[in-house]
């Protein structure tokens, strides 16, 4: 049995001591890899601040133990969220000046990007269903909803040429 755990974060493989097998991914991202864009909020998958993508889907990194990941699992954090969809979301976030304190926003952007990768034209209900797991103490929810719709529109227009 290997005495290490290997994970793939933002396209780079990292070999970690086997003692990290039960360490939450969030701790590795922030303390070991110094990727501090992903935030610690509650630590029990209740707030969504720590959301990253694993194989394109939203995952709460605070409750995802490193040992759960295989070498083939691709972790993407806010620092490397640079797909066409992620870029459109980020631009829309700036356009609508969504962030107030900003603490939850990396998680919000990761969830919004995952949503638009599966649903190109989400309704208010679709947005509420997927984004309700991401809390915002500043109450930026109406702006988040507007920004997601703007990003969806810009992506549709870009696709239609």
């Amino acid at each position: 049995m290997a005495d290490y755990v290997e994970i793939n974060v933002n396209g780079v493989r990292h070999r970690l001591d086997i003692r990290h097998k039960r360490t939450p991914l969030l701790w590795i991202l922030r303390d070991e890899l110094k990727l501090t864009g992903t935030k610690y909020g509650c630590g029990i998958a209740q707030c969504g601040a720590c959301t990253v993508h694993i194989n394109g889907l939203s995952r709460r990194s605070c409750v995802t133990e490193v040992g759960e990941l295989t070498e083939d699992d691709k972790v993407i954090t806010i620092e490397a969220a640079d797909s066409t969809i992620a870029k459109a979301v980020k631009e829309s976030w700036v356009q609508h000046q969504v962030a107030q304190c900003g603490y939850c926003q990396s998680g919000q952007i990761m969830s919004a990007t995952a949503l638009l990768s599966k649903n190109k034209n989400p309704t208010d209900d679709d947005i509420d269903r997927v984004m309700s797991g991401n809390l915002c103490r500043c109450g930026t929810y109406p702006l988040i909803r507007k920004a997601i719709k703007t990003a969806a529109k810009s992506l549709t227009e870009a696709n239609n040429g």
């Binding site: 039960r22 630590g43 029990i44 998958a45 209740q46 959301t51 394109g56 889907l57 939203s58 995952r59 709460r60 409750v63 995802t64 133990e65 759960e68 969830s111 995952a114 949503l115 990768s117 599966k118 649903n119 679709d126 269903r129 997927v130 797991g133």
Partner: peptide
């Protein structure tokens, strides 16, 4: 789950032993 927000986004393969944490 729904679309990009699956149950396993929070309910992982290990049990959360903190009260009100997502079990798995």
């Amino acid at each position: 789950g729904s679309d990009s927000f699956e149950c396993s986004s929070c309910h992982t393969t290990t049990n959360n032993t903190i009260a009100h944490g997502a079990p798995g």
